[in-house]
Nucleic acid binder design. Sequence first.
RNA 1: GAAAGUAGUCGGAUAAUCGCGCUUGAAAAAGUGAGGAAAGUCCGUGCAUCCAAGGACAUAUCUCCGGAGAAACUCCGGACGGCGUGAGCCGGUGGAAAGUGCCACAGAAAUGAAAAGCGAACACUACACAAGUUUUGCAAGACUGCCGAUGGAAGUAAUUCACAGGCGAUGGUGCAACGGUGAGGUAAGAGCAUCACCAGCGAUAUCGAGAGAUAUCGGCUAGGUAAACCCAGAUAGGAUGCAAGAUAGAUCUGAAGGCUAUAAAGGUUGUCCACCAACUUCUAAGUUAUCGCUUGAGAUUAUGAGUAAUCAUAAUACUAGACAGAUGAUUAUCUAGAAACAGAACACGGCUUAUGAGCUACUUUCAUUA
RNA 2: CGGGAUGUGGCGCAGCUUGGUAGCGCACCUCGCUUGGGACGAGGGGGUCGCACGUUCAAAUCGUGUCAUCCCGA
Length: 115
Amino acid sequence: MLPENYRLKNKYAFSATYKIQNSFYKNGIIMFVGKKSENIISPKIGFVVSKKTHKRAVKRNRLKRLMRESVRLIIKDNFDFKNTQSIIFVGKSQALGKSFDEINNSIKLLLKEIN
RNA sequence: GAAAGUAGUCGGAUAAUCGCGCUUGAAAAAGUGAGGAAAGUCCGUGCAUCCAAGGACAUAUCUCCGGAGAAACUCCGGACGGCGUGAGCCGGUGGAAAGUGCCACAGAAAUGAAAAGCGAACACUACACAAGUUUUGCAAGACUGCCGAUGGAAGUAAUUCACAGGCGAUGGUGCAACGGUGAGGUAAGAGCAUCACCAGCGAUAUCGAGAGAUAUCGGCUAGGUAAACCCAGAUAGGAUGCAAGAUAGAUCUGAAGGCUAUAAAGGUUGUCCACCAACUUCUAAGUUAUCGCUUGAGAUUAUGAGUAAUCAUAAUACUAGACAGAUGAUUAUCUAGAAACAGAACACGGCUUAUGAGCUACUUUCAUUA
RNA sequence: CGGGAUGUGGCGCAGCUUGGUAGCGCACCUCGCUUGGGACGAGGGGGUCGCACGUUCAAAUCGUGUCAUCCCGA
């Protein structure tokens, strides 16, 4: 898990982020970007791989962990999120079974889209 | 040496860097962190709340015997049946001489077996006869087949008879035709108070705790289907599942109408009796925390009892407990050049299914050599 | 976590209760009709009933297990 101030937690935060409908797609990963506001130190980030993507829990967990690890390394490099409140990454079936390098590149490309 | 069977084991390891959950601690830090199936949810329980604590019927589940177990579509040992050359494996395995139903097609007949048909009159088709169709009647005396002993008829006789009589063998149909195969026997035949072997039924004796096994005798035979209804026996308080539920805090508001009669409607198990509760309109609020939560019908080791499942006693350690939900990423080396199936969400006992590369023990069959 | 349903030609559905013949519509192929096409008419092909085992003389149908898909409740 990410450090506690980076976690996107409750149901209202998730649905609020989805409602903005500001999304980007790359290699089986969809990124939803939430509102912007001043005085935000760290963005809240959530990861979703639904049961419809794959039936087996092991494969869903694997994709989620790879995405989380990639984001963790990016945060460590002091990436500038430009005062974004919340971000959600949704894994789709095209991303299943890919290596860490492929996932990492996709997420880096997606995060460049934030303005 | 090859091919099998059974039981068990293993379920990646090491190092470096960057990280996560929980516990302890003031902090630094230390400890600890998925499975053999955690899966499917197919059974059975604990635990929790609510209803009932009264009765009847219905309903559901189970079904060889003994034992184990909290219970189980559970396990162990045995019996019987089936499969396999064998080691072994598989089996929802009570009752069809209580009753009902079903057994397609074929066949005379599918279960009180047997009608393998026959005769006559009238009508129709037809010129008529022959022949056919239809209708009606008949009940073991008749018909097809086998036989011609006995009796009868014909004939000198051999012999013949759609004569009486005897028989249910043979042929055909079908999964199945009121025991099977062979011999004797007979005119031909037949379980035929004839025989041998076998199946089945009943009785008796012996062995066994029992399922059952073995032997002898008897009469001389009763179709299949209960994973069709059913019968018999046994068992079962019901509903809802940890998002159960408990505690604390916040909220849970306020107002008006209705609450007499009839009918209808809700809940408690499917029904009945019986019992319990209540509605409508306007209006207000709603991102909580802790417990339940892991010390247990537990685990490991040893000893004892038992064929075994399992049980008893003693010692040892405490070993995930999250809540957008922890076990990860990268690199290198190795087993084996690329590690399968797969992720705890209250817990436990089973069953079922998925699974890479090997290893160990015992057993069987075949081949080769001595 | 709990509950329910479905699986049958290429597609959508009957048949299962009460076991013996797998059928209907659309689509497909051939022929006819037409100057040609469509429509119409006639004829034809194609499925072993998701999979496995069992009960039975006989299974799409009955029983058990298993796989997949869909839906509902908290």
